[in-house]
Amino acid sequence: MLLPRLSSALGLLALSMGVFGQDDSDVKSIPLRTHSLVSPYLDTDMQSRWFDFGGDTIIRADQYIRLTSDRPSQQGWLFSRVPLTATNWEVEFEFKIHGQGNLHGDGMAIWVTKQRSTPGPVFGSTDRFEGLGIFFDTYKNNRPGVTFPYVMAMMGDGQTTYDQANDGKANELAGCSARGLRGASVPTKARMTYFQDKSFTLDLQYKREDDWQRCFEIPNLSIPSVAYLGFSAETGELSDNHDIIRVDAKNLYSTSGASGKSTRPEPVRGKSTVQQKKSGGWLWFFFKLIMFGGVCYGGFTGYKIYIKSRRSSRF
């Protein structure tokens, strides 16, 4: 009976040593307060510390940032004041597109571009942009065989014009139909995940809560190293409310270098996040130390009992 116990203890000890010796390859995150927005959105001086807004944008501090109201010929925008310089990042935001009537338009856009806070004809922002634009197009102009709302990505080079007459067909890098996105009965959310020069993915939630649908994935995407995060919307003869409710941005990093080089987190303003990271690291170290010690103690105790029994059996 003692030999199986001793073997189990020693096996557990070896397994624990193997686990503790492995590199932690999980992707970790640090909140990017400079690119996040939550209610009430504004500081005491009725401005946002990290974002600028303009055009027809209105802010209701307890509910939403409304880029356009359900009225014709409106444009509104919201852009970060500082560039998004993290190497790898994730931006998840909650939004709502809704209005009265069966006919509606035109849509909204998310930007990670060198340009910022510049009104224009592309969903309320400038044309010939440099960087990434993602368009939530709710009105079909001329794209046979495509179901709307349609979500698509375009990589701008600073010279190319958005193909507005054909709903961006000539510019499309990737896209997906999202029927039910407008006026959904659950909170509508989008999540962008970017690993520099490796991949960009867009996931959507609009069918059921916590049910994320992969819209598209773009390999080997390279976004300008200095680019601003922004949102904009536009209405024409047809209109809709385009609301931003919450933005959560994170810096992603890996300490193991599982995907090549080890990526360290970008500097984050403020002390609380850094202190939390250090505290979490020490707690995990002590937890592993305690577990390792417990396994060693169990193995040593089992071994003593086994030796004692062997000596007693001789007599």
Rank of each mutant, 00 (worst) to 15 (best):
L2R: 08
P4D: 06
S7A: 14
F20E: 08
D26F: 14
L32W: 00
R33Q: 13
T34E: 15
H35G: 02
Q47L: 11
T57Y: 03
D62S: 15
Y64I: 04
Y64N: 10
S73K: 12
S80V: 10
T85E: 14
V91R: 00
I97N: 03
L103G: 02
G105W: 04
G105R: 03
T113C: 11
T118S: 08
G120W: 02
G124I: 05
F129R: 00
K140W: 08
N142K: 13
P149V: 11
A153W: 00
M155Q: 06
T160F: 01
Y162H: 10
Q164L: 09
A170M: 08
G175M: 02
C176S: 10
C176F: 02
V186D: 08
P187S: 11
R191C: 06
R191Y: 09
T193R: 15
T201W: 01
L204V: 04
L204N: 01
Q205W: 02
Y206E: 07
D211S: 14
W212C: 03
Y228D: 02
E234K: 14
E237R: 14
L238N: 11
S239Y: 05
H242G: 00
I244C: 02
I245E: 06
S254T: 10
S256I: 01
T263K: 00
E266H: 11
V268M: 02
Q276M: 10
F287Y: 12
F292M: 08
G298I: 10
T301W: 05
K308D: 14
S313G: 05
